[in-house]
Amino acid sequence: MRIVGKTSQYVVMTLFAVAFLAPLVWMISASLRPEAKVLSSPPKFLPTDTQWSNYGEVFDLIPVFLWNSVKLAGLNVIGILIVASMAGYAFARLRFAGRDIAFMVLLATSIIPGIAYLIPQYIVFQHIGWVDTQYPLWVPKVLTPVFATFLMRQSFLTIPNELEDAGKIDGASTFGIYWRIMLPQTKPALAAIGVFTFLESWNDLFGPLIYITSENLQTLPVALAQFQGEYFTKISLLMAGATISVVPVIAVFLFAQRYFIQGITMTGMKG
């Protein structure tokens, strides 16, 4: 029974993996082809004459942008984890006047599409001198993580009361309970938020495009978007750029992954 179950699980997982990876394999293989051979029909998965030079061309562009992207992603992740976990804890575990209304208002702000107020927002940043700085790319994001707060709230809600009560009996302060007792219980959620925040910052093309005009402050997605011109799209370079920019995110994911498997002793999940 067990072996049959396990084998069929592998079969199912492998089928899914093929469906999820095939297009990406094609992407990588396209990144290794000479431009005139990117589109072969029928599509071939393996390149015939490998062109590593596509990567060379991409790498030439990257260094400064890469550092900017890493820095911004780091600021966003750290900032959002702190702000969202504090707020999420309060919304889930503390009682205070106006709590539910405050939460609804926060959620409501995330419903309004950002492009509806792009122009006024730009004007505000212009007035405080933030245009052509990197502040618009992290300060407002760090201070308004509505979905992350929501997720933290839901995670704190699933923690049994006993832990918290034990802390109270020991006379820990509210902050102490949050920081030392409750927060460690939500590592999987923190890891998930960390990954998503990193990703969002990493792939953000729109923000840097609108707010940054100096080359030395610019980020990776903007550099990569330059491979697409009005009449001039180099697909092989586009694919090489996309492939390169995936690597750091996968690395972050692999790192964060251990927090997802931490509580894996879950007896209920074993066949």
Partner: peptide
């Protein structure tokens, strides 16, 4: 300034609306 074809229309209107365009 760094130039990208994507979203150029948006950038242009926003920069002009913001009052200090290139």
């Amino acid at each position: 300034q760094p130039a990208v074809t994507q979203e150029y229309d948006t950038k242009m209107r926003t920069l002009i609306a913001g009052g200090s365009p290139p």
